[in-house]
């Protein structure tokens, strides 16, 4: 999934990560947008290939941790091609609502088409929006989920504050993101495997650089404990994380007090 935001008035000379590179804050926004514009149409196929299909099980686990019930309102942030929104839709039912939000129009177009094709448009709304200043009222969601999107954000702290604002008290934030494997051998094997992703990207999508960014962005992303501290710092309570596949991915959970 995609996301990055440009600050309208960033301090002069302020830089941020774009994979291993340091780039000006405003440039990251455009470069991330270009990455996801380039891969949008083949994004789901590549996900299946890179995760060997396990991303479906991981997303199901995320969905179970959401604790959603019929009638709830959920925000699928940086939801791109709508994989999670499609799963949330039958759970919240006709009385509930899912908002699929992403800043990237190309990804959202793929998501919107999938939702319409599956006949789920009645309780899913698609909204192009910025995670760092969400265009929603305070206290209006029972759950906000951001899957494989947080690492692409320029200012993660600001996005977490924005999420906290739109969540209802007692509402739950779920952050599914790549993380750090706990076992040294698995870590080595995973590094070797992920080294193949740019090659697969070149073969399937015709874009090696986007997948090189993906691999690099995973490696510079905060580990489990650092992200947990970020959630605590943003004001979430009952924070915890669940390692999946030995920590290759992790699901962080936080509750709005």
């Amino acid at each position: 999934m995609t996301h990055s935001t440009a600050d309208p008035n960033p301090p002069q000379g302020e830089t941020t990560h774009f994979g291993y590179q340091k780039v000006p804050v405003n440039e990251k926004h455009e470069r991330v947008a270009e990455v996801f514009r380039s891969v949008a149409t083949r994004y789901d196929i590549m996900n299946d290939l890179m995760s060997l299909g396990t991303h479906r099980l991981i997303k199901r686990f995320t969905l179970e941790l959401s604790g959603l019930r019929q009638g709830n309102r959920v925000l699928d942030l940086a939801g791109g091609t709508g994989d999670l929104s499609i799963r949330f839709s039958p759970i919240v039912g006709k009385e509930g609502h899912v908002i699929l939000a992403d800043i990237n129009a190309a990804m959202l177009k793929v998501g919107r088409d999938r939702i319409i094709d599956r006949g789920l448009a009645s309780n899913i709304t698609v909204a192009q929006s910025d995670a760092e200043c969400l265009p929603f009222a305070d206290n209006c969601f029972d759950c906000v989920c951001i899957a494989y999107g947080l690492r692409n954000l320029t200012r993660k702290e600001r996005a977490l504050e924005s999420i906290l604002r739109v969540l209802k008290p007692g509402g739950r934030l779920l952050v599914l993101e790549f993380s750090k494997p706990q076992n040294r051998f698995i870590s080595k094997a995973y590094d070797a495997f992920s080294g193949l992703w740019p090659i697969a990207g070149k073969a399937i999508v015709g874009d090696k650089e986007s997948y090189r960014y993906l691999v690099e962005s995973i490696r510079v992303h905060p580990d489990q404990e650092a992200l947990l501290a970020m959630l605590d710092g943003a004001g979430f309570v009952d924070t915890r994380f669940h390692n999946v596949l030995n920590g290759i991915s992790a699901i962080h959970v936080g509750v709005k007090p």
Binding site: E64, L65, G67, Q70, I91, G93
Partner: peptide, 16 residues
């Protein structure tokens, strides 16, 4: 749920 069931591996302690 209405018209369907869901089997979840999450127990009450984990689901809160």
């Amino acid at each position: 749920e209405s018209g369907r069931i869901r089997l979840s591996i999450i127990d009450s302690a984990m689901a809160g």
